[in-house]
Design a protein around this nucleic acid. Structure first.
Lengths: 124, 124
DNA sequence: CACGTCGTACGATACTCGTCGTACTACGGG
DNA sequence: CCCGTAGTACGACGAGTATCGTACGACGTG
């Protein structure tokens, strides 16, 4: 407020910014739905392991760029991940703190379950 | 085999029996998908509280019988509930043991999360 | 400025899903 | 045997979704 930024200035290093749901707007059903897709569950698992400085293109998903964009948006709009532009790339990160505050232990349970299942099925 | 039942004999007290996935056939994605629908999440929550001797008609869901049947089937085929005929009624129960063995803590996390959210939103 | 890279937007398409209504079957009781 | 109750089967319909391709915009580097 005190800096009185004019308005059309988006931000220096960031570029344009993306709409995210506030914590109180995150719905359990949407989170579960977002996680119920194999491609998105894979994204979330990778994100949990690698930390939150991954651009969309580093995932090497077996789909086109359009479809990738779609899945990342579903995850973001459900409140599962946050996304920030950084130059030409878009960095992704899990909203672990927000999810843990809303649904304690849920994310870890799902990640553990996914890990165990991938071991069991031999695809992980 | 030794009894050599003709074939059309279904079973005595039980009536017809329904196909359930074996524990190793239960997929995390299917479980999450089954739980991501408000109506089904509601069924599962009620089942967790009331125990597993509830017939389909005791839920008083705001949908028709056809839709009810559909949701119960989705839950059964995902491995979330088991169903047994008992006379003209069909009794439902959570497959808590199987789910806990496959995905430890997941069911409790989701139930707790659902409970907290319903308190937060004032619809529970 | 020109170009390449990263990601978006939009339309198309095929599939899934939630819902309903109606017609039907299974079981139990008079 | 007839009827009522519990649930199923099937078809329909509208909404959502996962996918693609192509065209476009934003950013950084030469």
């Amino acid at each position: 407020m005190t800096t009185a930024a004019p308005a059309p200035v988006p931000a220096a290093g960031g570029g344009r910014d993306l709409p995210h749901p506030a914590p109180e707007e995150i719905r359990l059903e949407s989170v579960l739905h977002a996680l119920s897709d194999p491609m998105r569950l894979r994204i979330v698992r990778e994100l949990a392991v690698e930390g939150d400085e991954l651009s969309c293109s580093q995932f090497a998903l077996p789909v086109t760029k359009s479809t990738s964009t779609h899945h990342f948006r579903v995850l973001r709009e459900a409140g599962v991940i946050h996304q920030v532009y950084r130059g030409t790339a878009k960095m992704n990160g899990l909203r672990k703190d927000d999810l843990d505050a809303l649904f304690p232990g849920l994310l870890d349970c799902v990640l553990t379950a996914a890990h165990r299942q991938s071991l069991r099925l031999g695809d992980g």
